[in-house]
Design a protein around this nucleic acid. Structure first.
Length: 205
DNA sequence: GCAAAGATCGGCT
DNA sequence: GCCGATCTTTGCA
């Protein structure tokens, strides 16, 4: 099942990423996330994101200020923040806002696009809709790990974002964020309506 | 130093 | 619906 129309993509530059965090989270829906890992390119259409703020967001890693782990969140917009969680999974974010101000958008789900076979292989043969559904699965499907932490998406040869020429014809919905214990009520999650690759439904828990 | 929590996932009851 | 895997980061003693 195809959720999306045919369109062409071109690499997003720093102007896109410099948006305010909530706007970037919305704008990234429909963009294509591309990685080239060990010479192998694969990609998917972003269908689910969450915004994480700075000093005002107790759910964000950056809430308590800059630490060795969170320093990437304070860099110029367009940097890539990857972290390892629960001893098992990686999660990937695109940094927003200006240098010195923390903000990032967690990428939670993709529709597999280029090189689906490789993504499926990395995921141990999961069904297409599930290959990049959920932040941990998304990273596994695209081969994202800590070696990509700190990459700069506008210039990186390993990971970048491509914007669609044509805007999406489907509505983008929002809901509270998933899997957090603080600031649960903030409706800072964005996702594409009616898409089987989105990790959870409208309720979001 | 140490202990607890964590932006998850898949398997099992 | 609950639970375990498995390890890094961080806050506090």
């Amino acid at each position: 099942m195809k959720c999306l129309p045919n369109t062409t993509f071109q690499r997003a530059d720093k102007e896109l990423f410099a948006l305010e965090t909530l706007h970037l989270a919305h704008a990234l829906i429909g963009c294509r996330l591309v990685t080239t890992i060990e010479g192998v390119r694969s990609s998917g259409i972003i269908v689910e994101t969450e915004a994480y703020g700075g000093a005002k967001d107790p759910a964000a890693h950056s809430f308590r200020g800059e630490t060795p782990r969170t320093q990437v969140m304070f860099k110029e917009a367009g940097h890539v923040y990857v972290y390892f969680i629960y001893g098992v999974h990686y999660c990937v974010n695109i940094v927003s806002e200006r240098e010195g101000t923390a903000g990032a958008v967690l990428l939670r789900a993709l529709i597999p696009d280029e090189n689906r076979e490789k993504m499926q292989e990395r995921r141990g043969g999961a069904a297409n809709d599930a290959v990049a559904r959920g932040p941990g699965n998304l990273c596994k499907a695209l081969g994202i790990d800590l070696s990509l932490n700190g990459e700069y998406a506008p210039e990186s040869e390993k990971i970048w974002v491509e914007a669609p020429r044509d805007p999406l014809p489907l509505p983008i919905l929002r809901s509270p964020r998933i899997g957090i214990s603080k600031a649960k009520e903030l409706p800072w999650r964005f996702y594409l309506a009616n898409c089987a690759s989105v990790s959870k439904g409208p309720v979001g828990s």
